[in-house]
Nucleic acid binder design. Structure first.
Length: 1195
RNA sequence: GGGCGUGUAGCUCAGUUGGUUAGAGCGCGUCGCUGAUAACGACGAGGUCCCAGAUUCGAGUUCUGGCACGCCCA
């Protein structure tokens, strides 16, 4: 093994001969503060407008279209938002470097109930009445202001994370131009007959006076105990003789009983008439539930007869509360068949009735249940139009009983269960009562308010008409992961129902429909100007006055409530009548879905921008957006621009949008599917991981985010938890704190490199911290190593006079010291080959939107560079001769590789890469691009890829690894030289190459000689196994036999047969013979017992364990060198400081070692003098064999 | 109740078209290195691939049925 030379040259020669470039790279901190570095980079980007420049460079390039799904800036961002924004950043950055123009327009979702709730909290008000009392005008003004409250937080996060997006040009959903785009689209739908009004049973927040979307309802489910009552509905018998008989009807919502209309059975279910042993009454219920009920009421129920459900249908009963019956007197109506039937209080058939719980008879109050309502709808169809049953509803929109149920008028229904139950009991109509645990929705913003189902008049979009088109669209979208297409999203589209569009709220896009106050006929309006152009417009002064009173008022508010409601005009449908707007605003999901065109204010403006920026090539959000933004976008775009849209338009009887605006609507219908986004990465949800302890005194829970933090609470026992991030629990670190502690790159890298993005990610604080040494610091160390020696040796890349502004590898070739790669050493060619292989993989993966595997390739490249290339090349940088070609090669190779790597990682860790770029290109000054983000992404140079070399090096690394393993087993430390190792391989294909490049192995393993052979009979046992992949298809069922035969045969024998004849022949039990060639079988090695050996997949490494005196003394010398080097550091020697060394020892062999290896010791440690006595005025350190004195020599 | 997804080492996760020795990082243990050093490296231990069936010469991978968890919807 060659001695490890010291860093050279001397300080004098260094500064003298290389003064020009010696400071070229500058000093690099060994332990950088990444957060601080990132702040500097941010300032640099701002100052130099790098983002703007990166776009400008691609002004004429093909587009890569990205849509920003607008976040609702209605709360503080948490780590989950960082993931979304990081993914949204990495691909546009990558595509930009790959030569595309990728604009990134930010956007904000500003409308909706969440904002209203937030403002309500601030004002201390809750219900719609309170808002009305406060005043709609000041209320929506507050809403508009509130939206900006968290915006700064979001902008700070966005910037600090390095998410490049144009915040200055952000689209905002309440802006007039945006609202008018939405109006245009709604008018289009209206004119095509796709907007209609209907009844809908909705989940209703009575206190807030609004319906909640399915998503909102879903957020509020929690388990509660509700009363479960079995109520008797006495049947009205036509035969007076039969004894009293009642239906047993079950419900968990007693408050709906006053509005009862029917009782439902299932036709094909068996029902039993039983006699109550106690009262003698006859009860009707599902036969399957008789025993259960008997158990509950602890009475015997004797079955009198059984009947089918169908036979019960049509029987009439007395409703549990008689108010309606008293008032309506149990009317009859004419069926379409001509017969008469009672409108209410009959048994009807319904498929949803089960015997899972209850009694098999279900109370129907169609006002308060969607399925109940459907039954009513069917019933109505049986009657002639003038005689249909009305919807009975004794509850007002405020959730309180109305005049229809005078007994409890004005009472909040959910608190009347007890009273009602008592009344039933008093009336002898309550058979049984118990508590029932089930999930029930509450208002997600007002925890204490249970929701009720309630009928509302609502506007719908006929999306069901577009189901097939949406599915077709969906089928063409590149979903990541793919199962979204046919799974969650596909199923959702499959079961599409019409979009309930309207909201009876205040802060939202107003529904642009005006109604004739006389005829009720309607028309839609697509812009404010169109409205103003209507005949005899009145009411605009309301806005004018508000603006006059408060000039600060945003002009955008004029298209909002209440101002827009004041605007009326003359009805085109009847002379003298006025047109007045409907009162509703729309679902803010519609706003977000309109974003592809509304962000440009299209079609009222920006035809060209829209044409160019639609559809998107790439969008990404978390999986909760499946029914949100992913759907709203797809639905709206399909309806407006999809196949057949223009046909619908031309068929429309009323003037359509394109005539009003002059914009061509049909551009889209020509475009190919898919709409409106081609690719979508669906991110998993982010969970948190933390440690939790509950104090014994029952105080508040203590939350620790890392294991270390738990130590701050001695005596507490913490349990590790994984779950949702919770604002209340504060079980996650705020993004800004993460940035301050670890930096944005650390977080980004963790997100990109640790799991496929669609998995739910468990955010663990420690995991982000860990990504620093794993990747960032390792890269930094490699870079720092380079600068230290480049500095010392005065490596000057600017001698490449033709270097281009991106320092591409080709252009560096102009340097006089630059040799073609093919002429450089194996290890240089290897690392360059590996780099190009990695680039090839990374580009492929990133083009497929696969950041995870791209990062894997980066990690393994960095590992090769740091743990093999640099480690094995250190001697070359330390070599004395500063101008040797080998040294030049080493620098150029490392420099190039670092440059390439810097570009490769730029989209992932934009800060660190920027810093590296600045440092690496510093010698070139203004000749190179200011930012790595302005560079082109590297492209693999296939000419530099050498797969054979790559394969051989892999074996070499395996040999080194096995050698170390064998040393460890034999307890022979690496510092002790050994005379030889023998490497036994299965075949000779790589021996020649290995032999000619064995210095790496000799150095790595600290051995004098390496021998390679395929003939290792003494050391190893051979065994032969089938190559299943190849033989499987060939011999099929014989495989187990072949395997057995090969296993039983003598491996060494088979091998020699194979080597001499090129094949082996097996005699199978069935008498046939099977010939196997080299590729059909696989030779395996196993080290024999008794040798210091280790085996790997392709070879066995055997150590010669004989330690001669010479070897032992050399080992001692190396131990001494180590001790001296360590002491050099201890006394703060500079790299090039000279020292003198004294060693005091009684050990004769150590003294011999010193004499024998004096030169090597001095050379390696830069010792000018080495004596075997104490040095005066120097504090000694203990070493194994005595005392060591090291002192700096003053110059 | 329905849909979708997940289940692999102590932890967090990979695992391409089925191929017989299931991988990485962290953590742990042992050792090494000591001028890339508040770092780093090597080696090692650690697995019933959730369970049960089926298909197949061969299943972590395909199919069926369970179980557990998560999300979405009722």
């Amino acid at each position: 093994m060659t001695a490890k030379p010291t860093p050279t040259p001397t300080p004098q020669s260094s500064s003298a001969s290389q003064s020009k470039s010696a400071s070229a790279f500058g000093a690099v901190s060994a332990s950088p503060s990444f957060p601080k570095l990132e702040e500097e980079v941010l300032a640099f980007w701002d100052e130099q407008q790098i983002y703007e420049k990166s776009l400008a460079r691609r002004a004429d390039a093909p587009t890569f279209v990205f849509f920003e799904g607008p976040p609702t800036a209605n709360g503080m961002p948490h780590p989950g938002h960082c993931l979304t924004r990081a993914i949204k950043d990495v691909f546009p950055r990558y595509k930009t470097m790959r030569g595309y123009r990728c604009e990134r327009k930010a956007g904000w979702d500003t409308h909706g109930l969440p904002v209203e709730v937030e403002v309500g909290k601030e004002l201390g008000i809750h219900s719609k009445e309170e808002i009305e009392a406060y005043g709609v005008e000041p209320f929506i003004q507050k809403c508009q202001q509130s939206v900006w409250r968290y915006m700064r937080e979001w902008e700070t996060l966005t910037r600090r994370l390095g998410f490049w997006v144009d915040l200055k040009q952000a689209y905002v959903t309440y802006h007039q131009s945006y609202v008018e785009s939405v109006w245009w689209s709604l008018k289009n739908l209206f004119d095509r007959g796709l907007l209609y009004q209907g009844h809908k049973i909705v989940w209703w927040w009575a206190q807030g006076g609004t319906a909640l979307s399915a998503g909102e309802v879903g957020q509020g489910y929690r388990e509660v105990a509700d009363p479960s009552v079995y109520v008797l509905f006495p049947l009205i018998s036509s035969e007076a003789s039969t004894s009293k008989r009642s239906l047993v009807v079950w419900t968990t919502t007693p408050w709906t009983l006053p509005s009862n209309m029917y009782a439902a059975v299932k036709s094909d279910l068996e029902y039993a008439v039983v006699e109550d042993s106690e009262t003698g009454e006859q009860l009707v219920l599902a036969a399957a539930l008789v025993e259960t009920l008997a158990g509950k009421i602890k009475r015997e129920l004797k079955v009198v007869e059984t009947v089918s459900g169908a036979s019960l249908v049509g029987q009439r009963y007395e409703p549990p509360f008689s108010d309606y019956r008293d008032r309506l007197s149990d009317p009859q109506g004419s069926l379409k068949t001509g017969e008469q039937e009672h409108l209410y209080w009959r048994v009807v058939a319904a498929d949803f009735v089960t015997t899972d719980s209850g009694s098999g008879l279900v109370h129907l109050a169609p006002a308060f249940g969607e399925v109940d309502y459907e039954v009513l709808a069917e019933e109505r169809l049986r009657f002639v139009e003038s005689d249909r049953p009305e919807l009975l509803c004794a509850v007002g929109p405020d959730g309180k009983f109305t005049d229809e149920f005078p007994a409890l008028k004005g009472e909040w229904v959910k608190s009347t269960d007890k009273t009602l139950t008592r009344q039933l009991r008093d009336g002898g109509k309550l058979l049984h009562q118990e508590q029932y645990l089930h999930d029930y929705p509450f208002c997600w913003r007002a925890d204490d308010d249970p929701l009720i189902q309630y009928p509302r008049e609502s506007w719908f979009i006929r999306t069901t008409k577009f189901r097939e088109l949406m599915l077709k669209n969906n089928s063409q979208i590149g979903w990541q992961p793919e199962h979204i297409r046919d799974g969650r999203f596909g199923n959702f589209l499959d079961s599409n129902v019409d979009w309930a569009l309207s909201r009876e709220r205040y802060w939202g896009t107003p529904l642009p429909i005006w109604v004739c106050q006389s005829t009720g006929r309607m028309e839609a309006v697509c812009s404010y100007d169109e409205l103003l152009a209507k005949p005899d417009v009145q009411g605009t002064e309301v806005w004018d006055q508000a603006k006059k009173a408060n000039p600060e008022l945003a002009d955008d508010l004029r298209v909002h409530k209440p101002y827009i409601d004041a605007v009326t005009y003359a009805s085109p449908f009847e002379p003298g009548a006025r047109m007045k707007r409907v009162t509703e605003v729309i679902d803010c999901w519609y706003d977000s879905g309109a974003m592809p065109f509304a962000q440009w204010g299209w079609p009222h403006q920006n035809d060209d921008r829209f044409a160019e920026q639609f559809p998107a090539d790439f969008i990404s959000e978390a999986i909760d957006q499946t029914r949100g933004w992913f759907y709203s976008q797809l639905a709206i775009s399909t309806m407006l621009f999809g196949e057949g849209a223009s046909v619908d338009v031309s068929d429309s009887p009323t003037p359509v949008a394109k005539d009003v605006t002059g914009s061509a609507l049909t551009t889209s219908a020509d475009q190919a599917y898919p709409y409106p986004y081609r690719n979508c990465i669906v991110l998993g949800l982010m969970l948190s991981q933390w440690y939790e302890a509950t104090p014994k005194d029952g105080g508040a829970k203590i939350i620790a985010l890392t294991e270390e933090e738990t130590a701050e609470h001695p005596g507490m026992s913490f349990t590790k938890k994984t779950g949702k991030m919770s604002k209340q629990l504060r079980n996650y670190r705020s993004p800004s704190e993460i940035f301050d502690r670890y930096g944005a790159d650390a977080m980004r890298w963790y997100f990109f490199a640790n799991q496929a993005p669609w998995n739910s990610i468990i955010y663990a604080d420690g995991a982000i911290r860990d990504s620093i040494p794993e990747f960032l610091l390792r890269l930094w160390n490699t870079f720092s190593f380079f600068t230290i020696y480049a500095e010392i040796d005065g490596f000057d890349p600017t001698t490449a006079t033709d270097a281009d502004e991106q320092l591409s590898p080709e252009s560096l070739a102009s340097a006089p010291t630059y040799r073609p790669v093919s002429e450089r050493s194996e290890i240089d060619r290897w690392v360059i080959s590996e780099t190009n292989v990695a680039i090839d993989v990374i580009v492929q993966r990133m083009d497929s939107l696969d950041n995870y595997n791209a990062c894997q390739a980066i990690t393994s490249l960095l590992d090769g560079l740091s743990n093999w290339y640099v480690r094995r090349s250190r001697d070359r940088y330390w070599a004395k001769e500063t101008q040797s070609q080998d040294k030049h090669d080493a620098y150029w190779t490392l420099y190039e590789t670092l440059l390439q790597l810097t570009k490769v990682i730029a989209p992932f860790v934009p800060f660190l890469s920027e810093k590296l770029w600045q440092e690496l290109t510093r010698p070139f000054g203004d000749r190179v691009l200011k930012s790595v983000h302005l560079c082109d992404y590297p492209v693999a140079d296939t000419a530099r890829i050498d797969m054979d070399l790559s394969q051989s090096m892999k074996v070499l690394r395996e040999i080194a690894s096995l050698g170390r393993s064998a040393r460890a087993d034999a307890k022979l430390k690496v510092r002790l030289p050994l005379s030889a190792v023998e490497v036994i391989l299965t075949d000779d294909s790589q021996i020649a190459w290995l032999q000619s490049h064995d210095s790496l192995v000799r150095e790595e393993l600290n051995v004098k000689n390496v021998a390679y052979t395929t003939d290792g009979g003494d050391y190893v046992q051979y065994s032969v196994v089938p190559n299943f992949k190849r033989l499987g298809p060939k011999v099929g069922k014989q495989i187990p036999v072949v395997k057995k035969l090969l296993g039983e045969a003598d491996g060494n024998e088979l091998l020699s047969q194979l080597q001499s004849v090129g094949k082996v022949t097996l005699s199978l039990p069935d008498g046939s013979e099977l010939e196997l060639d080299n590729d059909d079988i696989e030779v395996r090695l196993k080290a024999r017992e008794g040798w210091a050996a280790a085996q790997g997949p392709s070879c066995v490494v055997v150590l010669n364990t004989e330690v001669t005196d010479d070897l032992r003394r050399e080992g001692i010398a190396k131990d001494l060198i180590r001790a001296i080097q360590s002491q050099r550091k201890e006394i703060n020697c500079d790299y090039t400081d000279r020292i003198e060394v004294g060693i005091v020892t009684q050990d004769a062999e150590t003294l011999q070692a010193i004499e024998l290896h004096r030169d090597m010791i001095c050379e390696e440690t830069l010792a000018e003098r080495l004596v075997v006595e104490a040095l005066p005025n120097v504090t000694p350190v203990e070493i194994e064999c005595g005392e060591l004195f090291v002192a700096k020599v003053s110059v």
